[in-house]
Amino acid sequence: MIPISYYLLLSAFLFACGVTGFLIKRNIITLFMSIELMLNGVNLSFIAFATRLQTLDGHIFVFFVMVVAAAEAAVGLAIIISVYRTRETLNVDRVNLLKL
């Protein structure tokens, strides 16, 4: 018997780790993995809330998030490959033809 808040805190922690990773990491693939970590945190929230509310809609939402994550991974890794071909680097700071 533990409160749902524990699960929510864990999910918030995962999300925050993802955000931190996105801000401090410099390798493009690691940045992308940080985003996956954020999505995993969100998924845990959905499941935890579904348990609290006693409806399965949260489970369905997680299912769709996974589909989207898979599609994003396919496209994202293709983009990373195409950048690597033109620039030969995976460091975001070196991908700097366009000024920010």
Partner: peptide, 18 residues
């Protein structure tokens, strides 16, 4: 620059989606 624009859009876009 096109590949780079795509990468920036993708990374920040997925970040926002999360």
């Amino acid at each position: 620059e096109s590949a780079e624009s795509s990468l920036k859009y993708f990374l920040l876009g997925s970040f926002a989606t999360a």
